[in-house]
């Protein structure tokens, strides 16, 4: 006996009595063949259970969506927002990692060695070997004080020792003169 084909069973499962012109033949075969009958019933039950289970599950899923306001666009927006947040975080971490990996040979100069408001501050901030060299620089105030000292000096620096002797000599002479005047007065 020739059993039912997949096509015939597929049509029978869907209840296609008119399609293909073989429905009557299929029905008659199922009545006479216990094996095909058993197989057809098993297939039908399986498909029916599957169909019912899927329909019920889908309905439950949809009910949950409707209970929650069923706003798919809002859910999509949240989904995109989550991705954007993750992207921003990744970007931040990448930037931080890049900054950490970047060579930093020039540590910042200790603030204490640089006077505030000096012209040398930017130079000091450049750091490197310049910071290790002796500080030959002079602040504006120090420079100004040095100039004032030079200008206020009565005698050239080179002549200062001679001048000091002269001053001392003059002071001694003046003191002797005062002493002489005092004794003559007595």
């Amino acid at each position: 006996m020739k059993h039912l084909t997949d096509e015939q069973l597929a049509e029978w499962l869907a209840g296609d009595s008119a399609e293909g012109g073989c429905a009557e033949e299929t029905r008659r075969h199922l009545e006479s063949c216990a094996q095909c009958h058993q197989e057809a019933m098993t297939l039908r039950d399986g498909v029916l259970r599957y169909s019912l289970a899927v329909k019920r599950q889908a309905a439950r899923s949809q009910e949950a969506r409707l209970a929650g306001g069923f706003a798919p666009k809002r859910a999509l927006a949240m989904h995109r927002l989550r991705w954007a947040g993750a992207g921003a975080l990744a970007l931040l971490l990448t930037a931080q990692t890049a900054w950490m990996l970047k060579p930093h040979n020039a540590p910042a100069a200790p603030p204490a060695t640089v006077s505030a408001g000096t012209k040398t501050a930017p130079v000091a901030a450049m750091g490197g070997a310049m910071n290790n060299a002796p500080d030959h620089t002079m602040s504006d105030d120090e420079l100004l004080e040095a100039v004032n000292n030079d200008l206020s000096r009565d005698v050239p620096e080179a002549l200062a020792p001679v001048s000091a002797i002269t001053v001392a000599r003059n002071k001694i002479a003046a003191a002797s003169k005062v002493a002489a005047n005092n004794s003559s007065a007595k």
């Binding site: 899927v54 329909k55 889908a58 309905a59 899923s61 949809q62 969506r65 798919p72 859910a75 999509l76």
Partner: peptide, 19 residues
């Protein structure tokens, strides 16, 4: 919704695609 849910088995995707 059910057609899409059967195709995708994903509640959120089915809802979005229904829309």
């Amino acid at each position: 919704y059910r057609v899409l849910w059967c195709e995708l088995r994903d509640d959120e995707a089915a809802a979005n695609l229904t829309q």
